[in-house]
Design a protein around this nucleic acid. Sequence first.
DNA 1: TAATCTTGCGTGTGCGCACACACCCATTAA
DNA 2: TTAATGGGTGTGTGCGCACACGCAAGATTA
Lengths: 376, 376
Amino acid sequence: MANQNSTFEKDIENTVHQVMEGTGKSKTVKVKIKDIAARAGVSTGTVDRVIHNRGRVSDKTRAQVLQAMKELQYKPDILARTLARKDESLIRALIPYPYQDSYWKIVRNGIEKGLAEFSPYRVYGQINFYDMNDSLHFEKMGDEILHDPPDVVLLGSEFHRQSIDLLKACHQHRIPCIVLNAEINSVPTLSFIGINSYAVGELAGRIIRQTRGCSSVLVVHTTTNIENTVHLKNKELGIRSALNQASPDFQVHQLSIGNEFRKKEAIQFIAHEVFKHGINTLYFSTSRAYQYAPMLKKRFPHLFIIGHDVFDQHVKLMKNGTIEILIDQSGYQMGYQGIRSWAHYYIHDRPIPPTQYLPLEIIYPENLPFFALNHP
Amino acid sequence: MANQNSTFEKDIENTVHQVMEGTGKSKTVKVKIKDIAARAGVSTGTVDRVIHNRGRVSDKTRAQVLQAMKELQYKPDILARTLARKDESLIRALIPYPYQDSYWKIVRNGIEKGLAEFSPYRVYGQINFYDMNDSLHFEKMGDEILHDPPDVVLLGSEFHRQSIDLLKACHQHRIPCIVLNAEINSVPTLSFIGINSYAVGELAGRIIRQTRGCSSVLVVHTTTNIENTVHLKNKELGIRSALNQASPDFQVHQLSIGNEFRKKEAIQFIAHEVFKHGINTLYFSTSRAYQYAPMLKKRFPHLFIIGHDVFDQHVKLMKNGTIEILIDQSGYQMGYQGIRSWAHYYIHDRPIPPTQYLPLEIIYPENLPFFALNHP
DNA sequence: TAATCTTGCGTGTGCGCACACACCCATTAA
DNA sequence: TTAATGGGTGTGTGCGCACACGCAAGATTA
């Protein structure tokens, strides 16, 4: 019956112990402010002052109240607290236009979901969009936020340099910022939420290594200025590290497709590279595989294509065999978690971790249907 | 700037529309019961009667109230509602002893997390455990639950036949049941939450196909009675379907290791099969790869080992290269979602979907660290 | 016709907390 | 001495809702 591996013996004991404890119902008696007041020999108003650090309380009284709270293990009733409180918290999010990139559409859904979930808790939000092909527009929207500052900014970062500028400005104005998508370490921020882009590259590399034997890989970035899109560059570094170091059998090439090209031109560029280097594996570092994969696969049926993120177009292309593997970057989770982090801070005083890496999900046709169910 | 694929034109318009709408804050004016009462020309007590279908209200008055609610788009304040309500909801979970299987330890964590999250909402729970190697003990614990029935039962199913019996009894006693882990269709239940076991098999098959070229696979079940553990049998069927149909290059063998064997004996059995059939790929259908993988890998270094679920032991074995791939079955999510489903039904009257398939996560060393962060 | 019961509805209280206000007492300044 | 300060504390109200109670009619029975 019991696990025979003696290494886990201690583990077993612990668990059994918890089992016995856990047999009781997980419900506990409510300790109210009144109880604390009585115990400390003061009024509820004084307890309130201690809890919220407002008004003046003598050191002696404060100590008594604190002691009573500790002894009775006081846990505030969040529902009652929220019902009674009069202030509120405003979040302003700044992300690219959802229609410019399906990825950001998903992120936005996550944000909306979070806002809906926490609005009963007096956490409200407003989502602003910027043109991800126009850094000036980003700067303009940033200024707008600075002129009507919220309690926290949720920044969906794409332009590296400009994002840093905005974060600096926020820092000066004492507006806390949560950064989504692309990690920025040169400016102090409240939190970063997103994937580890270098690790994504490594993961893609691992998959290619395991599934393709030797191969020649083309990394396609769909961005005008790859040097100002650091998270994409990192993915490339990751994939290079995973493949080059593994064996000389693997070759990695790179191509950036700026916005100045039309779709047809872009495909021509890619096709040219494929032909020139004998590419047999295509990795799109952004979520835009769906724009190029169909035509390329038709022209080069042997291509093994890896894309990012699960949404309608990619689901279709995976089902019909155009795309072999998708690596989802948890965009929905990213948006949701951004709101949630702040909300929990506001509601429960829960500290926000400075870095919140999200999972990297590998999607094949077989686990696709179960995955997609997760972000409606 | 805009997506040039005309197929998505409509999509774009919609999104832009939402963008403009979304510019406003996501906060709305609160409609209270008082407002409805005033509008319908009745008292708040009557509105209450209509909302909760209690007491008596004349058809005419009821219609007026309903109309007012509709016109004002009344949304109850969940916080105030929960604060004021006097009843509560009790969940009883019945799952295997956590120390018998790390998987169930994770599931239990998810349950505990759910209970902690929803206890402010007057949803309470009690977790009971059964011996997963002793179906009589399961029956005994089932009886205990029937003698002190909760509002809902959360059943972590392992013994197929005995689970059906318990569900039938619950059905007769009008106790709703949420089934975790192994899908059971022959008895009406409130909901099933878990993975699609056949799909897991197919997924494992796909991965083997793509990563191994031709190979000889051994499916190892760690259960005494494989015929009474239908979800494991289904995994095997899935993997057979994926591999046999694909090409004659793949061979699938099977081995069940009952509890009557000691660990050393069991490893002897597996080793014998490996030797006999020239096995080069090992797939463990349960979460017990960690018990056998280390010794087997030492003896047969060429073995490609696939296991299930992420927890301490497996993390270690993946990091040191003993296990190549893990497929996580979202056990934490399963437990959490079980509590959450019922809680949301109790709190928001949200209907519970009859089938809730969970995602299948493919874990390599590269995405392992980001995954593990998700269930503390 | 009075005594009950039924139907339909209004009123009041409290859930646990935040927050505004009023108050008292000891200093200090005028 | 009085007035003005300010530190320290208690009281009251309301957040939005559920639920118990109570009250007035009409319907039914004795």
